[in-house]
């Protein structure tokens, strides 16, 4: 046996560095490129009219995507309202009340499947239960499709975040004579609140860019979303339609909408991180 040589060690170190650093750079570069491209081509579309006006007929200049922006906001909000409470409660059940029960095991398994289900399948599924029977596309169906996408993400993050809370905290709440539900709501939720909020924000950010589920449910519209009971304008399907059109004005608007979605997701994600840093100071 003889000691390893210093040169050998250094060579191995260099080799691994050479392999790692470019990989990391590629990851960042792709993101930067996307951002650059979206900003460069999209920012020109940002006029007051883009945010407030209805789209013009094909070939006509001007107009905006106000209806699509509003529609996306409405449906995403509604989806969050539908999906978040169910996801939170299910997560609480998985983490706090029946972690090793048979139902929990089954629920966890199906949740994983649901998370891996392509969103287009969710779209077709909702199409078959909420569009076909009623005979028309609707914003409600769009919101339900998005809610189904939010549900498993919120459920898993809730369970994971609650599992991070040490058992001693639960025990000391119970040892004071508090019933289980009060310990969960008053202590455990509070201890995990930043994680829970982050989970919900990230889930919402994720679905705000979904196109396939909306294509089969909300479809699109050239009008203001007067009622969610009819086809509802939204940004992602608009991007899909406009980007493939031959009109350069529409193509530019598609870039604008892409920039708007990217920027919103970025803002929500940064917000989520900010919440963590701001209030995450628990011990």
């Amino acid at each position: 046996m003889r000691p390893r040589s210093r040169a050998q060690r250094r060579a191995a170190d260099t080799a691994i560095r050479v392999a790692m650093v470019p990989s990391a750079l590629i990851g960042i570069a792709v993101l930067a490129w996307i951002l650059w491209e979206v900003i460069a081509r999209g920012v020109g579309a940002f006029t007051p009219a883009f945010f407030t006006e209805l789209p013009t007929p094909p070939g006509m200049e001007g107009g905006g995507l106000g209806n699509a922006i509003l529609g996306t906001l409405l449906m995403t909000l509604l989806a969050a309202l539908l999906g978040t409470p169910v996801g939170l409660l299910a997560g609480v059940f998985l983490a706090e009340f029946g972690p090793s029960s048979r139902i929990a095991t089954a629920v966890r398994f199906t949740t994983n499947l649901l998370m891996g289900t392509p969103s287009i399948i969710i779209g077709i599924f909702v199409y078959s239960i909420l569009v076909l029977p009623f005979g028309h596309f609707s914003g409600w169906a769009g919101a339900v499709a998005l809610a189904i996408l939010i549900l498993p993400v919120v459920m898993r993050t809730t369970e994971d975040m609650l599992n991070l809370v040490p058992d001693e905290l639960r025990e000391s709440g119970l040892a004071l004579g508090a019933p289980r539900w009060r310990v969960t709501l008053g202590i455990i939720f509070r201890a995990a609140r930043t994680g829970l909020v982050t989970g919900v924000l990230l889930a919402v950010a994720r679905v705000s860019g979904e196109t396939a589920p909306l294509l089969f449910t909300a479809l699109n519209s050239f009008y203001w979303p007067g009622s969610l009971n009819q086809p509802t304008a939204n940004m992602t399907v608009t991007i899909f339609n406009y980007a493939m059109s031959p009109y350069s004005d529409w193509q530019e608007k598609a870039w604008g909408a892409s920039l708007l979605i990217t920027a919103s997701v970025l803002v929500v994600t940064v917000l989520a991180r900010f919440v963590i840093k701001d209030k995450g100071g628990r011990a």
């Binding site: 040490p166 001693e168 025990e171 000391s172 119970l174 004071l176 004579g177 008053g186 509070r190 609140r193």
Partner: peptide
Amino acid sequence: LRKKVGMIFQRPTPFPMSIYDNIAYG
């Protein structure tokens, strides 16, 4: 029973709230 029998754990377990609310909780 648990009101009558208090318990202190190995590691301190302050609840994620103010000092006052920690005591007021029970």
